[in-house]
Design a protein around this nucleic acid. Sequence first.
RNA 1: CGGGGCGUAGCGCAGCCUGGUAGCGCACUUGCUUCGGGAGCAAGGGGUCCCCGGUUCAAAUCCGGGCGCCCCGACCA
Length: 492
Amino acid sequence: MAKDITPRDSDYARWYTDVVTRSTLADYSPVKGCMVIRPHGTALWENIQRGLDGMFKATGHENAYFPIFIPKSFLAREAEHVEGFAKECAIVTHTRLKAVEVDGRRTVVPDPESRLEEELIVRPTSETIIYSMFAKWIQSYRDLPILLNQWANVVRWEMRTRLFLRTTEFLWQEGHTAHATHEEAIEEARRMLEVYRTFAEEWLAIPVLTGTKTESEKFAGALTTYCIEALMQDGRALQAGTSHDLGQNFARAFDVKYQSAAGDWQHVWNTSWGVSTRLIGAVVMCHGDDDGLVLPPRVAPVQAVIVPIWRNESQREAVLAQGRALCERLVARGIATRLDERDNVNPGFKFADWELKGVPLRLELGPRDVEARQVVAASRLDRSKTKLGWDGLEEAVAAKLDEIQAGLFERARQRREQATRDVETWDEFLEAIEEGGFVRARFVPDPEVEAEIQQETRATVRLVPLDGADDPGPCIRTGRKASGRVVFARAY
RNA sequence: CGGGGCGUAGCGCAGCCUGGUAGCGCACUUGCUUCGGGAGCAAGGGGUCCCCGGUUCAAAUCCGGGCGCCCCGACCA
């Protein structure tokens, strides 16, 4: 059916790229590893932002903005943090260009005279610069907690990139908080993990597992990294969000201290948490099909599209007049609705076009429907068609959208259930990993053993379930006594 | 950084082996007929054939060098 989209089962990676580019979410940029987020993709990101931002505000956070440039020396202060990010930083060394001629061609080179004394790092994440500011702002326990978030771009010079999933520059939000006690910080990190879980499931209709990362997978500089992990249709896992208990690591590195009620000085306890435009990749891979994008109604830039159908000029007038009236009513009700008035393409083309772009609900309006005072509603979830009368159309459409939202989540949840297996032995493990999906196995986390397993199977521990410790037995790899199961998968 | 592929019209490609008028489909423009699942006919417009150099009467095509991008692995949200 869909033209120019590679079917999922013939080449999933190619399908993904086809869908992202053809649906006009994003395009490749002239700079390797970077992408242009086109209006459709930006509108989707804005809806994601709006949803999350509301949830951050509701949990007491405020937005702020910190600079993109970080003094090089800052990054060196927290040992593990340097280790984790040093390999992927972009560095600003000069502040000017100079026009020169090379082989008779006009070009520009960095002006050697503008070399920076202290080079600047383009932020790969903002812990260092934010906590350096916290040190200035915090004196007393009365200044705590500080609960901040910023919406920003960051740069990580990755070797291999993929639209939305891993690009050199990406958009995200990063929350940064400071607390008086460790208990409070842990509570915060877990609260935000729960915000992410809720957002992923209720807004993006993506079921996620929650848990903690093992030592080898956790954020560089954190005590504990909590994460939400989703499963894509090809059986690979995708880390969709992380929340870190940073302990006092950064507080010590940047000397962030407060005076307690008792009068003594203590380092604060920090958390940080983030989700990125990768969520868009998750939506594409979780819900998309061979016809293109399938967007959850709650974040879809266009929730319903009215496709008018006519045979002649007088029908065209009548259908369009009704289409405009219905569109206005739906918009007034808060449903993002578009009327496709294009007259250079026929209805069949429009159907396919809006399906490609993932619009959850299509409302067909032709002469027969005008006659019967109805529209034919076609669901992007399963192509099912329903006739909806003009009276009370707003409620009927809203109900349909809710139904699609719920249906998407349920379908994704079932896919995940079917792709989740418990295994007891190493052989079963190998077989299950080869099949794809989440593999739950008893395991004693150990960086060396994990590296071995990854080497041999390309699978990693995706998470240690928060409540999964009560299932003792032998570790699948070493036979050591494991307290419970962890979740393995091959991941993006 | 290793392995593979590709740079020719806005997009997707053929032509290259065997050098000689730069082509096809889609898109675009105009007109008419169409329109309930990606319309038809007719007429048009559009090119530093990635870059630099070499061979040749003649290079998209042959030779040398460069650059870029995509895909697959190792690193990562």
